[in-house]
């Protein structure tokens, strides 16, 4: 049997997932995607997923993976490009249930990483407390998330700033310092 070789897609998807996995496993640390939010879409989505995408161009690329484009209340993944869009999606995205917490959605949204209010994160993945500045988040984002979800229900946030990402899984507690 000949040794199989990775395709360029394989390499991009593995790199994107590696960045996402560590971003979620160590909330607050900054990781790098090969190019940007679209990498996450390609690494995660196919015809078995239901996706809300705010940006029409990204929506086209996502549709080409076979994923169903749906309204955010039915989506398991949402890709938002504006603060207002993210807030609107967060208000209705599925949060899963105590029985099936995995049905809580993943929301990918923009943020300014390294500028803005200073936040203190605690929880799994964090030794003590992790401090980080995050800007450009819609007002009341994290309050809305905690109001809607009772752990282990939840929505997992992936904040994207160009190629850089920060993960805020549902397990993490965030306070403004």
């Amino acid at each position: 049997m000949a040794l199989p070789h990775p395709t360029p897609d394989d390499l991009r998807d593995t790199d994107a997932f590696e960045a996402l996995m560590w971003a979620m496993a160590r909330p607050g640390t900054v990781r790098s995607l090969p190019e940007g939010a679209a990498d996450l879409a390609l690494a995660l989505l196919d015809r078995e997923t239901r996706v809300h995408a705010e940006d029409p161009e990204l929506a086209r690329r996502i549709a080409a993976t076979g994923a169903a484009l749906v309204t955010p209340d039915r989506a398991d993944h949402a890709f938002c490009t504006t603060a207002a869009g993210a807030m609107a999606a967060l208000a209705v995205l599925p949060v899963g249930s105590a029985l099936y917490p995995d049905e809580g959605a993943t929301l990918v949204m923009p943020a300014i990483i390294g500028a803005g209010p200073l936040l203190g994160l605690t929880g799994p993945g964090i030794e003590g407390q992790c401090r980080l500045r995050l800007g450009g988040l819609p007002e009341g984002l994290l309050d809305l998330r905690s109001a809607r979800c009772r752990y282990p229900e939840g929505i997992d946030l992936v904040l994207v700033d160009g190629r850089r990402i920060v993960g805020l899984p549902r397990s993490v507690a965030v306070e403004v310092l």
């Binding site: 199989p4 990775p6 394989d10 996995m21 917490p101 397990s171």
Partner: peptide, 27 residues
């Protein structure tokens, strides 16, 4: 191709990735 790189085909890997992210989010 007789076999994919890393054996699993791309859609199998994507499902694993999605579930592994959720597994991290709810330890």
């Amino acid at each position: 191709a007789a076999i994919s790189w890393g054996f699993l085909d791309a859609s199998a890997k994507r499902e694993m990735r999605r579930k592994m992210i959720k597994a991290i989010a709810v330890p």
